[in-house]
Design a protein around this nucleic acid. Structure first.
Lengths: 189, 189
DNA sequence: CTTTTAACCGAATAAATATTCACCTATGTT
DNA sequence: AACATAGGTGAATATTTATTCGGTTAAAAG
């Protein structure tokens, strides 16, 4: 027998991300995915039972690869440094994978999303929440509501990276430092 | 002859916004719109030539009503107060009209959007940019890149209001004040 | 080398959705 | 009151898109 081809699977995912970036998850069709991935339409159904399963699977894959991977290396550092590293890594990740970010965002608001996929978003947020709380205990971070601080970090990084991606501006050291300074002034005591 | 019914037009728009909030612009169909608006499918085509025209027209309407309207009253105030007022109004507007925000966001990433609609986003941003520049000249706002500061304001307000809408938390004075304090610390000199 | 099995394929089919149209109905005009 | 006109309608049609299926091909097993 012939085994499945890992390259084809990845080509399907890549095509899905590219197409979503181009005309949104609304414009995504199975035939376009097949054409972009350079495989036959029928082959799509070897790898996935349906379009719905395809996009859920992709979402799952992106979530598990995503920003979570960085956490473990940082746990020993002081709070401010941890935040700085997270900020830097997140910006890099989001700028470099902007099409993926677009896909995930649109997927979250689509009727395709399964209950299981919905649950996948929380681990990174939890970690960030704990870090902020730790900073508050050490009196180096404002005693403001956690949601208020967290929204700042996530909303800001999302907007900044999508603005950079839109204008095709590179993510320079200067931008990282300036923007982190802004963040830190926002949340420090 | 019989005149068009303004109520029906608004019902169509309302239905479109509601449905987009429920299962995204992907799940939006003409028959669902008609059913939700309690009119016949055929009637939709009395008011709009096509689905594409319908969503573009709605986008145009929301943009022109939107946050722009507040600007004129504020021009005399000092920079910090203007920002404070804008912050407050924007949060209110975004929380109260969250479904509209969702619609606009998804529309921007859909294949439905026309060239003309794309152009509509800029006036408010321009005004905010000028205000920040004025603050920088007066030395009360950081000398950082304008894009970096602007991303903070827009990304933060978007995230905060969508978080409030998601958790159905009310927008209290306390939240407005705390979050504006965070903003101001972020951008002040 | 032969057999077996599952990948691979795209034309054909099914399903979902947008759009039309022939027929009503309500409102303004004469 | 009679007419003219445009709104209102949803079943019928056209279009688009997901999915199936019978046949072909390539890899693994023996």
């Amino acid at each position: 027998m012939k085994p499945k081809d890992e390259k084809k699977l990845q080509a399907i995912f890549d095509a899905t991300i590219t197409l979503t970036g181009q005309e949104g998850i609304v414009g995504l069709t199975m035939s376009k995915i097949a054409k972009t991935a350079k495989i036959g339409i029928g082959t799509l159904y070897v790898y996935f039972e349906s379009k719905e399963e395809l996009v859920n699977e992709l979402y799952r894959q992106l979530k598990s690869k995503g920003t979570l991977s960085m956490i473990d290396d940082l746990k020993q550092l002081p709070v401010k440094l941890q935040l700085m590293e997270i900020w830097k890594n997140t910006l890099h990740y989001q700028v470099e994978n902007h099409a993926q970010m677009l896909f995930m965002e649109q997927f979250l608001n689509s009727p395709f999303i399964s209950e299981e996929s919905r649950g996948l978003s929380h681990r990174f947020m939890e970690y960030l929440g704990e870090l902020l709380k730790k900073g508050q205990e050490q009196m180096i971070i404002k005693q403001a509501d956690e949601g208020i601080l967290m929204s700042l970090l996530t909303g800001y990084s999302r907007q900044l990276s999508s603005q950079l991606a839109a204008t095709k501006a590179p993510l320079t050291e200067q931008i990282i430092n300036e923007s982190f300074a802004v963040c830190w002034d926002a949340i420090k005591s």
